[in-house]
Write a protein that binds this DNA or RNA. Structure first.
Length: 418
DNA sequence: TCTGGGGTCCTAGGACCC
DNA sequence: TCTGGGGTCCTAGGACCC
């Protein structure tokens, strides 16, 4: 069985831990520039304040009910998250930290999952002050649904989908839009076909689902039928893209303001790359006008470029970003948002190997693959990469794109210590 | 000049998640 | 007047290679 532990109203709960006078009082937490509501306590939810709602629309409710309003404090939330996650990691053999406030936990071999989860929940509440709900099911997707039920329909905050009868019954009560992996587009498409509950969804023809919703939709359907597709990812690899973007507090027409924003976002991206000891192979820059302002024609400028060689160098990244900005900036428009994305990230010290130079027969190639797998598993990341034929055939042209640790001698990788 | 299958890389766009 | 930020995965088409 797999459990999903999810902190209740996480940001709001964090604020409450450090200010007990807020107990039973409505709380909301706001996004950057205090624009949107991104977290609500139960009391705020029952006042009718919606998730993601802009503050000005909820102004009346907030003022009329003395709702406590906070700007985000990510240093605090990150710290509280670490405390909760380390308690989970202490009691379980394997956990996957899925987001700042959620973790999947391997419950294999636990005799009384509900009882165990109940104790865990109480311990976390006692030690950290954070309330959590725990849902348990045979797959990740069902654990997500169990968690949803635990939050909405139980007082204990624990729910376990431990029999086919129970699963069948619950799926009839869950609407398609509450299934993990089915968002607004797919759920309105499904409702158009009169598919309204999770139970309706699993009755669908699998080929039809594959065609309409890609392989991801099909996997979701099968997970609801207890076929495991999504394994616990206990050893998450590095980020594949890193993005830094912000809306402007005050909108701007000036290239100078955009330059400043893009420069500081690029500096931040380079820092994040160095923090994970990695380099990026391409960079993108985006700027946007205000989509809600119909006086301006909506404009979304986006342009990418590949680096000659992977880099995490601040100066190169800032320069590339500013060059891209020049290509997409249009005079006369009023901009609301700017961002920088660095992507196709490779480890700084990755060893890349071309095996076609030296290895001829299949058994040698097989044993090389096995050795590489072993090294990567023990490092917990892709330390060694065997390159595809496409890159190699042009290696003379693309030499700069390869890692500094590129080799054609497969014996080299055997020197790497695990 | 026309022909073919199988493969990788690159990019953009669309869906989803918290 | 005022509408977040940071990610993942999949698909599809074109360029290019053998």
């Amino acid at each position: 069985m797999i459990a999903l532990a999810d902190c209740n109203n996480f940001y709001a709960s964090c604020e409450r831990v450090f200010n007990p006078a807020l107990e039973n009082k409505p709380i909301v937490v706001l996004s950057n520039n205090d624009g949107c509501i991104i977290a609500r306590s139960n009391e705020a939810k029952s006042l009718g304040i919606k998730m993601g709602e802009p503050v000005f629309k909820a102004r009346k409710i907030i003022e009329g009910n003395n709702v406590n309003v906070f700007s985000t404090n990510f240093a605090l939330y990150g710290d509280m998250s670490n405390r909760v996650m380390s308690m989970l990691a202490d009691v379980a053999p394997e956990i996957e930290i899925y987001s700042i406030d959620e973790a999947f936990i391997d419950f294999t071999g636990i005799n009384n999952p509900s009882g165990f989860a109940g104790e865990l929940k109480n311990d976390i509440r006692k030690s950290t002050g954070i309330p959590v709900s725990i849902g348990i099911g045979p797959t990740k997707t069902l654990a997500k649904i169990a968690n949803h039920v635990a939050k909405k329909k139980t007082d204990s905050g624990i729910f376990c989908l431990d029999s086919p009868v129970k699963i069948d019954q619950i799926l009839k009560e869950i609407s398609v839009s509450d299934i993990w992996g089915i968002g607004s587009r797919y759920s309105s498409m499904l409702c158009g076909q009169n598919i309204r509950t999770a139970h309706d969804f699993i009755k669908l023809d699998e080929q039809w689902v594959l065609e309409k919703m890609t392989i991801v939709g099909l996997k979701t359907l099968q997970e609801l039928k207890e076929h495991k597709h999504f394994a616990l990812d206990t050893n998450p690899t590095w980020k594949k893209n890193i993005c830094t973007s912000r809306s402007f507090g005050v909108k701007t027409k000036k290239l100078k303001d955009l330059k400043e924003a893009i420069t500081s976002h690029s500096v931040r991206c380079a820092e994040k790359l160095r923090m994970q000891n990695a380099c990026a192979r391409y960079i993108s820059v985006l700027i946007k006008t205000d989509p809600f302002n119909d006086k301006d024609r909506y404009y979304y400028g986006y342009r990418s470029v590949s680096f000659n060689s992977p880099t995490n160098d601040t100066i190169r990244i800032v320069q590339a970003a500013n060059d891209l900005l020049k290509c997409i900036y249009k005079q006369g428009l009023t901009y609301k948002k700017a961002g920088v994305i660095v992507g196709d990230i490779v480890p700084q010290d990755r060893v890349q190997i071309d095996l076609f130079e030296n290895l001829e027969n299949d058994s040698e190639i097989n044993s090389l693959h096995k050795a590489v797998d072993r090294i990567n598993r023990s490092m917990g990341r892709d330390k060694v990469q065997i390159l595809g034929q496409g890159l190699i055939s042009k290696w003379g042209l693309k030499r700069e794109k390869l890692s500094p640790c590129y080799t054609t001698r497969w014996e080299d990788i055997l020197k790497i210590r695990c």
